[in-house]
Amino acid sequence: MKRALTKPLEYGDKEGSQASSRPRIAIIIPCYRVRVHIETVVANVKDRVDHVFVVDDKCPESSGAFVAERFAGTNVTVIFHETNQGVGGAMMTGYKAAAENYDILVKMDGDDQMDPQHLNELIAPVVLQDADYSKGNRFHAPSFLNQMPKIRIFGNAMLSFLNKMSSGYWKLMDPTNGYTCLDAKVVNMIDFDKIDRRFFFESDMIFQLGLIRAVIIDVPIPARYGDEVSNLSARKVLVPFFRKHLTNFCSRFFYQYVLRDFNIATIWTLFGVLMFGFGVVLGSTYLVRAFATGEQTALGIIMMSAINVTIGLQFLLSALAYDINAEPSRAIARYLHQPPGAGR
């Protein structure tokens, strides 16, 4: 049975109400160098949800202590890290703390780039059990990108394509978007020890959710920028992100198409790589030899190279089509028990 979607704490429900059947919602805010914006962010969301967890990731500006002082006695809890663990480390701490008593876990950054007015839209797919994880998508409409710098548009487009290949979620865009929502029942299935602690966290989270066949849905949410300074540079992350995505792609292929389900796509991929590679190497070898010696290459060699390249490419395209159609479509949270203490 699908859970009813209501506006949290806006329809007369009180925190801790046993009579309400609505899911209990918590927002997790990783906190590092955001003292200028954090008070506004927390103030704008604390009355919209049941609880707010602020994770101070050894912030040099003492943002966590600032929040604890400003919101003492409210539904805001501040968790302090003794060492800086990155946004991923902060979120894993927040997920583990919030999943004990809450059903819906929302990630919102502390730089005030994420509009709380879109909170209901973000959580709707998870509350209705159409998805296990939802995330914002700033690329849904051209008008959404008016405020986004051009270099970010290009960088995010490239990163989105790499993420599609490594995760298998071919319909997703904007993988670095930090405005996300997770069903708490899925938390115990995620291997947090293998998720990147730094800027690759959001992309790695999608990859890990893909390994457990979770359903992820993009929610159209426009970009919002103010005077904040982003710590993520497209120029600096493209190369390291490419290496990480390549590693994830190889891991996913081995786990999904060899260990868990050896199927026709596995055969197409293996034969495709072998035939395409053989054709390219064969053709290149004789092409170089022809340029070096001036001798003509035998027609049979040319045909053998072309046939292997063509058939190999067809096998690879067939495997790609299979992978695109194999994207998860039924939320796994429907079949999982609630974590201990959830909904109490």
Score class of each variant (00 low, 15 high):
V239L: 14
Y133P: 07
K2P: 01
G300N: 14
Y179R: 05
Q147V: 14
D191T: 05
Q117I: 09
N248L: 04
R260H: 13
I332E: 05
I324Q: 08
G210Y: 04
F315V: 02
G272D: 10
I267H: 06
A298V: 02
S318W: 11
V87M: 12
L162H: 14
F80N: 14
V258N: 09
S251M: 15
Y133L: 13
L336P: 05
Y257K: 15
L270N: 07
D112A: 15
S284L: 15
Y11F: 04
V67Q: 04
F201A: 02
L287K: 03
H81F: 01
T269E: 09
M189W: 01
M303P: 00
Q117M: 09
Y335W: 05
I332H: 03
A68Q: 10
T269C: 05
N146I: 13
V281S: 12
T269N: 11
L299H: 12
N188R: 13
S305G: 15
S143P: 01
E202C: 06
Q117Y: 13
F253C: 09
V52K: 03
N325F: 14
K46W: 06
P60D: 06
V41I: 04
P339S: 04
A342S: 08
R3W: 13
F271V: 14
K107M: 15
L287M: 14
K2H: 06
A184Y: 03
Q18I: 11
F144N: 09
Q129I: 09
A90N: 05
L9C: 04
N308K: 02
T6M: 04
H37D: 07
A214Y: 13
P240K: 05
M92Q: 15
A333I: 10
I307H: 00
K96W: 00
E39N: 08
V273E: 03
H37E: 13
V187L: 01
